[in-house]
């Protein structure tokens, strides 16, 4: 699958990455090349093979419904690039 500039822009938008205009062509080439490698999986006969999401055949363990976490809000807010009045701040969210 060869990606063109539009594809690269669309993927970058989904991933919320900004691209320099000059980068796009190079990136399209690199990504297309990589996809070429990945497409080797097409050669495999996987008819009737169940997808494998986990290396071990285990099932989910459940935890008891108990409050075990005490939150030190100030410690967390101290990590935030911008906060005020106990809130994390971001540029205005428009609904």
């Amino acid at each position: 699958m060869a990606l063109d500039a539009d594809d690269v822009h669309a993927i970058a938008h989904l991933a919320r990455l900004a691209l320099d205009a000059g980068q796009v062509g190079v990136l399209a080439g690199e990504l297309s090349q990589t996809l070429g490698l990945l497409e080797q999986i097409n050669a495999a006969d996987t008819a009737g093979v169940a997808p494998m999401a986990h290396p071990l055949d285990m099932t989910q363990r459940l935890r008891a419904d108990e409050v075990t976490e005490q939150v030190d809000r100030e410690a967390f807010l101290a990590q935030a690039p911008a906060s005020e009045a106990g809130l994390f701040l971001v540029p205005r969210v428009l609904d």
């Binding site: 993927i11 996809l35 990945l38 999986i41 097409n42 169940a50 494998m52």
Partner: peptide, 28 residues
């Protein structure tokens, strides 16, 4: 680069051909 590739192989229309196929290969 890896975020871009990963985003692409999960995106609508490509999930089956890449991600799901790779999961089947993983079992093989």
């Amino acid at each position: 680069r890896r975020i871009m590739i990963g985003t692409y192989v999960l995106s609508a229309g490509y999930y089956d051909a890449y991600y799901l196929k790779a999961q089947r290969c993983r079992r093989l």
